[in-house]
Design a protein around this nucleic acid. Structure first.
Lengths: 165, 165
DNA sequence: ATAATAATGGTCAAAAATGGTCAGGGATTA
DNA sequence: TAATCCCTGACCATTTTTGACCATTATTAT
């Protein structure tokens, strides 16, 4: 009984299925720069459980690799993968992300925003918007939770600055 | 047997019927800015149950999206959808702030950002930064709490934009 | 007029159709 | 042989689709 995506050619001989799925998707992306797939359909095509598609995406189509992924559940659901252009000075972003643990104080977040501005990664206007986002007016301070949220928000923003669309 | 809106062209291939209905209505609205439809007629056109038209309206033609909907039952009943022109500048901001309670869902926040962009109040890049701030990747706290934070962040940003004017 | 009846649209909850997470076991590699 | 990577399946979350039942308005019969 044929199993695990045999019959798709021998180019991938010796590699595992995840590699084959990755290869398959990237081949399409080489031409279209954006694809929309059905998770179950792809899983079916390669004879694997649907969640393996998530595994492939999580390990090989990360933003660090220059891929954006969006998805939608429910009827007519999909997974969309897009190849984006990574900027040159991603190092700054990586460094900053590393410095942020899972908590980020107000003071530190201001420093980071300043750094971003000085690096030319964001404009003054953008810096102010980010600051507004990081310091919501009347959230009761003095709470670890805020610092956790702030860290998450900051990291999310930094990741978005990696690429241009 | 033809099913589910086939025959209306393949532009929408891969999307669900609700999306197609939305697309169909918005296409008309792009020219007329106000339409009056018969629920059962549209339902019939797309081969769906009438209540799906309500679903489409409730999820895609909300006031946050800039649409006003009125209807009348009984003989000669109708559903009227109107594209309302978003006010100007500060008014938009005030309106948006008012619409946000103390909680803000992900979906609604995306709509608001889209509105800001469509109103020309923010650039696409700024829109993306704001979205990144509103939708931190992996916050795993209590959901209500996230919505509360999101509301605060959004309001903070809106207020900031107002002062910049 | 009034009361039935027909013609609409509205609500809501269940079912169906997707995709997501996570932890454990197996396979591969250093 | 320990660490890492791959694969699987049980369970979860979200969005769409459907249908039974309800509400309102217009028309028709009495």
């Amino acid at each position: 009984m044929v199993k695990n995506g045999q019959g798709l050619g021998d180019i991938m001989a010796g590699k595992n299925i995840s590699d084959m799925i990755e290869h398959y998707l990237k081949k399409i992306l080489a031409e279209d720069e954006k694809i929309e797939i059905s998770r179950s359909q792809i899983a079916n095509l390669f004879n694997v459980v649907p969640s393996q598609i998530n595994y492939v995406i999580n390990t090989r189509f990360t933003i660090q690799n220059g891929y954006l992924v969006e998805s939608k559940r429910g009827g007519g659901g999909y997974i969309r993968i897009e190849k984006v252009n990574l900027l040159d000075d991603v190092d700054v972003l990586d460094t900053l992300i590393e410095m942020i643990g899972n908590q980020l104080s107000l003071r530190d977040s201001e420093t980071i925003v300043k750094t971003l501005y000085n690096s030319g990664l964001i404009s003054k206007r953008e810096a102010n918007i980010i600051l507004a986002a990081l310091i919501p007016d009347e959230v009761d301070s003095n709470n670890d939770l805020i610092d956790i949220f702030r860290a998450n928000i900051m990291i999310s923003i930094l990741n978005h600055l990696r690429y241009e669309k």
